[in-house]
């Protein structure tokens, strides 16, 4: 069962590459949406580790995404001219990992002092953090200030986006399904009882936060090399809310549900494109209706309960 997970990851990455190989034949618009979906899966599944499995309430995911996005974009913009063309995939990989790493460091910096706080305080602090990050990029000349960064190479292919989506699902899934990972869910269920069972709640919360931030950073880098331009406005509070909605709608802590929600909520605005101005209103209303109708999440696939996973 355990080595099955690794095999699954390899197959998923291979499939992403195979699809990507034929991507020239796809409609560019649909291909773009498919990449959006991949990126949103990374965001939603990684936030699900924090908000769903571990039971925190973070509103800072767009902030971590921004850290990763700007870092990766700046890195490629500086180095692409002096690096040989054959090194491009390597350069991109390093850019993404660097973005993820810096986002993780940001996660650690925010997480360590604040994860002792209760849920709603954490929500406020992470919200504030997201805004600070946004304002930082908005006012820093080196990152293009209010205009943002432009001319980022279009390196995010279907393969890149979906391989990292598969990796995110793999990492979160493997963590949570192990005996070690019961700790995340134990902390979610009851912090006091978790402590009494020898589980260090703060440690698990920080771990979830840092891993979640890392993948948000990766998603940011993919996003930057997909849209080819970054503006601080793209990482505002609403972006964080969008991801939170995916997690809630997917059913907190249920990876499969969160993936489906990420797919649907990426498609929904596209489907509603025809409604022009009223699009956002319809989108918001639909979400409100869904939340009221299914507060436990749209998709209640049972979490594997028994010992055999």
């Amino acid at each position: 069962m355990n080595s099955g997970a690794k095999r699954w990851l390899l197959v998923a990455v291979a499939a992403a590459m195979a699809v990507s190989y034929f991507s020239a034949q796809f409609n560019r618009y649909y291909l773009g949406i498919a990449i959006d979906i991949g990126i949103n899966i990374i965001l939603a599944v990684s936030l699900n580790l924090i908000n769903g499995h571990t039971g925190q309430f973070s509103l800072g995911h767009a902030g971590f995404m921004a850290v990763g996005g700007y870092t990766a974009a700046k890195f490629t913009l500086e180095l692409q001219t002096i690096s040989p063309p054959w090194a491009q995939p390597l350069l991109f990989l390093v850019a993404l990992l660097l973005g993820g790493l810096l986002a993780a460091v940001a996660g650690l910096a925010v997480g360590v002092p604040t994860l002792r706080l209760r849920g709603d305080y954490l929500a406020i602090v992470t919200l504030g953090f997201g805004e600070i990050i946004r304002v930082f990029f908005q006012t820093t000349e080196a990152f293009g200030a209010a205009t943002g960064l432009t001319g980022i190479p279009h390196w995010t292919t279907f393969a890149w986006a979906w391989s990292f989506a598969a990796l995110t699902v793999f990492v979160v899934g493997c963590l949570v399904s192990s005996t070690y990972g019961r700790g995340f869910i134990a902390v979610h269920d009851d912090e006091v009882a978790a402590g009494a069972m020898g589980i260090n709640p703060v440690r698990y919360k920080v771990t979830a936060f840092v891993i979640g931030a890392f993948f948000a950073g990766i998603a940011g880098g993919l996003y930057a090399h997909h849209k080819q331009f970054l503006s601080p406005g793209g990482f505002d509070f609403m972006k964080s809310i969008d991801i939170v909605v995916m997690v809630i709608l997917g059913g907190m802590g249920r990876t499969a549900g969160v993936i489906v929600a990420a797919v649907l909520l990426t498609l929904l605005p596209e489907v509603l494109r025809g409604f022009a101005d009223s699009r956002m209103i319809i989108y918001s209303l639909l979400i409100i209706v869904l939340m009221i109708a299914r507060p436990q999440g749209l998709f209640t696939f049972g979490r594997k309960a028994a010992g055999k996973a």
């Binding site: 134990a186 009851d190 309960a305």
Partner: peptide
């Protein structure tokens, strides 16, 4: 104060974690 979202088995499994050498990397 049982872990409400877990099975009987997993409630006990969560408590076994503390004497195990396997952490995040092994997982």
């Amino acid at each position: 104060r049982l872990f409400a979202s877990m099975s009987v088995f997993d409630n006990v499994r969560a408590a076994v974690q503390l004497h195990r050498p396997h952490g995040i990397r092994d997982a």
